[in-house]
Amino acid sequence: MTVRSEIISQFQQVAEEHEKQLPPLADDLELFETGLDSLCFAIVVVRLEELLGVDPFTSSEEALFPVTFGEFVSLYEQAAG
């Protein structure tokens, strides 16, 4: 599984667990438009660290939280690369 497909799968799973409707995950979709709340993102980050072995937010102090889905994916791709 690629980093991107892993991320998409986690977004979908967490959305399902929290009974949220997820729009199609396009790169320019802003994260707040996904319908996921901060708790959902916190859970996604924890689970991605388990799956990918990286947490780009705590491993770098400068990491800003991404605005779009595309930025979120590339942050992980860089960290996992």
Partner: peptide, 12 residues
């Protein structure tokens, strides 16, 4: 507890 960049802490 686990540190979270978003909620400060999260439960595992």
């Amino acid at each position: 507890t686990r540190k979270s960049p978003i909620t400060g802490a999260i439960v595992v």
